[in-house]
Amino acid sequence: MSLDTRTVRRIAKLARIGLDEQECEAMRQELDGILGWVEQLNEVDITDVPPMIGTGLAKPRLRQDAVTDGDKRDAILSNAPDREGAFFTVPKVVE
């Protein structure tokens, strides 16, 4: 697949990249090279290749949902400059 200058300008506009004439031609050649490499991938025989594990076949590793460092309310509230019962007290900010 070969790109023309008009298509390269449209891609540059969508990507919000400003290109002058020389840069546009250089970008066209570079994109043609990239598309050439992608077209070569169509020639690879993958009939006996199993899918990779990252395609959604893997099961996520789950852990127990357990509290590991809880029950420290008094130690945490001891750092508060002001408190009322089991709550932090803060200045009123909304009238």
Rank of each mutant, 00 (worst) to 15 (best):
D4C: 03
R6C: 09
T7C: 11
T7H: 15
V8P: 00
V8N: 00
V8I: 00
I11N: 03
A12G: 03
K13I: 12
L14N: 14
A15P: 00
I17Y: 06
I17R: 13
L19P: 13
L19M: 11
E21K: 11
Q22H: 00
Q22W: 02
E23H: 01
Q29P: 01
L31Q: 05
D32E: 06
G33K: 13
G36A: 13
G36C: 07
W37G: 12
W37R: 15
W37L: 15
V38A: 12
V38Y: 15
E39F: 09
L41D: 10
N42R: 08
D45I: 00
D45H: 01
T47H: 14
D48H: 13
P51D: 04
P51A: 14
P51S: 06
P51G: 09
M52F: 13
G54T: 01
G54A: 01
K59T: 13
P60S: 00
R61C: 01
R61V: 00
L62Y: 01
L62T: 03
R63W: 02
R63V: 08
D69T: 05
D69G: 05
D74K: 11
D74H: 11
S78I: 00
N79D: 12
P81Q: 13
D82F: 08
R83F: 04
F87W: 12
T89R: 09
V90M: 07
K92P: 06
V93S: 00
V94S: 10
